[in-house]
């Protein structure tokens, strides 16, 4: 009984904290206290969190190295804009269709390629991501390389917050479910898990599709905030950026992915004033972090304080592992 009660207290406090965070930021925005610069970077942070967490499901938990995440983001961005701006349907329809389309793209790409292992999979996904980009460049309906400009700004704080929380919740719950244990077992030893009777292909594709769907969500938010989308935005360097967040945070750590996404967005913004050395510093930080902490900031541990505990983790034994 005590346990059940504790659980409800925890869930209650989580909801409370999230609600107050939401209200605080909403208040700051409506009261005009959060200036535009911070709003933009907050948006970037949320979108990057969505992208990083969704990629961490594929790369971190399932252990399938994917380098084509920007491609799914592109699918989401373009589909949502077609729905909202060209067909004049509501944003929610755009988001849902974007997620479905990106998930479908994930399925189409995932089914054949997920048979591949390690680096070969990485290369195949990289190639698919580039094919998506080149294809978009050649579709006149979406203006080819010029992209679609003048997209209505529909990504507001409630949407962003809801989307980010939803992404994290879905992925954390998935990872902690029986599906999640199957998925993690594939990462740990694919052959062994197959011998245990796990249909590895099914779970790999599942993780891939869900990751792609949320990348589509990120893309839809991106398109409806930054006014313009063009194929070049979603090139393989964008996929690398997302991958960097996941690895920097620690493969197999959702909190790690979140922290890294927030950190890298903040770092990018902070370095805007140093144009000459900006990318050099970024590159150095990457190399140094990897040399001194190759497992990423969090390793595969989760950041779990009592209050936040349940949101992110159930997998973590309480400190027993150290």
């Amino acid at each position: 009984m005590q346990k059940v009660k504790n659980k409800w207290i925890k869930i209650g406090s989580e909801v409370l904290i999230l609600a107050s965070l939401f209200t605080l930021v909403q208040y700051l925005i409506t009261a005009g206290l959060l200036n535009q610069y911070y709003q933009i970077n907050l948006t970037s942070m949320c979108i990057n969190v969505i992208l990083a967490v969704s990629l961490s499901l594929i790369n971190g938990f399932t252990g399938q190295l994917s380098l084509g995440h920007a491609g799914f983001m592109a699918v989401g961005a373009y589909v949502s804009v077609i729905i909202t701006n060209m067909l004049d349907l509501p944003f929610i329809v755009g988001i849902l269709v974007a997620c479905l389309a990106a998930g479908l793209a994930g399925f189409i790409i995932g089914v054949p390629t997920l048979r591949l292992k390690g680096d070969y999979l990485a290369i195949a996904t990289l190639a698919f991501g580039e094919i998506i980009r080149v294809t978009l460049q050649n579709i006149d309906y979406v203006n080819g390389p010029a992209g679609i400009m003048g997209i209505t700004k529909l990504t507001t704080w409630p949407w962003l917050f809801g989307g980010t929380v939803l992404t994290v919740l879905v992925i954390v719950n998935l990872v902690n479910s029986s599906y999640g244990r199957a998925i993690v077992s594939i990462r740990e030893d694919e052959i062994a898990s197959e011998l245990m009777g796990i249909n590895t292909t099914k779970y790999k594709v599942l993780a891939f599709v869900i990751g792609a769907m949320f990348a589509g969500l990120g893309g839809a938010f991106y398109a409806h905030y930054f006014y313009i989308i063009k194929p070049e935005t979603f090139n393989f360097l964008k996929s690398f950026d997302i991958l960097v967040m996941v690895v920097l945070g620690g493969l197999g750590s959702t909190t790690g992915a979140i922290i890294a996404a927030v950190f890298i967005t903040a770092l990018t913004a902070a370095l805007q004033s140093f144009p000459a050395i900006r990318m050099i510093l970024y590159a150095l930080i990457l190399v140094i972090v990897m040399i001194y902490r190759p497992q990423g900031l969090m390793g595969n541990k989760e950041l779990s304080i009592k209050i936040f505990g349940r949101i992110w983790s159930g997998r973590n034994e309480p400190d027993g592992n150290k």
Binding site: Q36, Y37, Q39, I40, Y225, Y227, I228, K230, Q272, S273
Partner: peptide, 21 residues
């Protein structure tokens, strides 16, 4: 006041907001 927008539209937006500050 020089700022780098990294040849990306979202960075250009963020930089503009910073400059307006």
């Amino acid at each position: 006041i020089e700022r780098d927008c990294k040849s990306i539209a979202d960075e250009a937006m963020s930089v503009s907001a910073a400059l307006i500050g």
